[in-house]
Write a protein that binds this DNA or RNA. Structure first.
Lengths: 146, 146
DNA sequence: GCCTAAACCTATTGACATAGTAGGCAAATA
DNA sequence: TATTTGCCTACTATGTCAATAGGTTTAGGC
């Protein structure tokens, strides 16, 4: 599945905030950008989307930055992906519900793939992705995480 | 998952050829285009891709058209999708195998989704999709299929 | 109250892919 | 030989992506 950098960076940013903002301190866009090698200005747009969608809260001014708006185990992956790219989890365009080959294939093939993708991301929480990632590469993070 | 019309039309065309060319007769591009409501000229490009990839054979001239180059149960869906869009089943761009968050998420999240998608399409044959579709909407096809 | 660091917002841009359209050439058949 | 069909090349309009740029607002530190 093709994934845009907007979606990819968005998830990275969110997870960066979870990891480096664990004790309630906010994480600035510049900090994330430098740590994850993402264009600072581009990241700002992405963080804007994530804030609009209600995943993160922002604090302006000095010592400001971003923090999770709600616990990581209440953030569902499908919501995150949809917020960053409204088409990523939605299936084919609506073509009516006739009996054309097009409609039939839509129901029998494309929607199967799509519902599978949805079922997986709908039950997956941000916290689980973070934990899964921690398990796989723990040693490199221990020195940052307090 | 977002799917381009190129991929969608390609699968439609292939299945149309399976269904309406069952007894060895070839199916013309114009025929498919009219039946499935696809731009004839655009469809030609797509059929060109399918022929290049070895799924269909073409017959020029009067009474010409397209037919399957090999049996439908030897055509694997992942190959078809890849032929129509090389990015659809391939994961994220290669970003090196360091220990950045980016790499870790790639391994722990994106590649999971992708391998799942690949596993499904790699075992799925064109004939199975056709049969599945026949089962779901049989009455509308019976009058065409000989 | 000023300086600075940060988020916020708007506009613009270059590159690329998509979804076609157009027109002619080549081949095979009737 | 005329017609039908596929083959091939070129072109275009539209939209999205991935930034970049620059200014405005807000909040904290001094």
């Amino acid at each position: 599945m093709k994934v845009s950098t907007r979606v990819e960076y968005g998830l990275i940013a969110l997870m960066d905030i979870v990891i480096y903002g664990e004790n309630g301190q906010s994480v600035s866009a510049l900090e994330i950008a430098q740590r994850e090698n993402i264009s600072h200005k581009y990241l700002e747009h992405i963080l804007f989307l994530l804030r609009q969608a209600g995943f993160i809260a922002a604090q302006k001014g000095m010592k400001g930055g971003y923090s999770l708006a709600r616990p990581a185990d209440e953030i569902v992956l499908s919501d995150v992906l949809n917020a960053l790219d409204s088409t990523i989890l939605s299936g084919l365009d609506d073509c009516g519900e006739d009996s054309t080959l097009r409609s039939v294939i839509k129901v029998c093939f494309w929607e199967k793939i799509n519902s599978n993708l949805n079922r997986y991301t709908e039950q997956l929480k941000l916290s689980e992705v973070v934990n899964q990632c921690r398990k796989n590469i723990p040693e490199s993070w221990d020195m940052y995480v307090i």
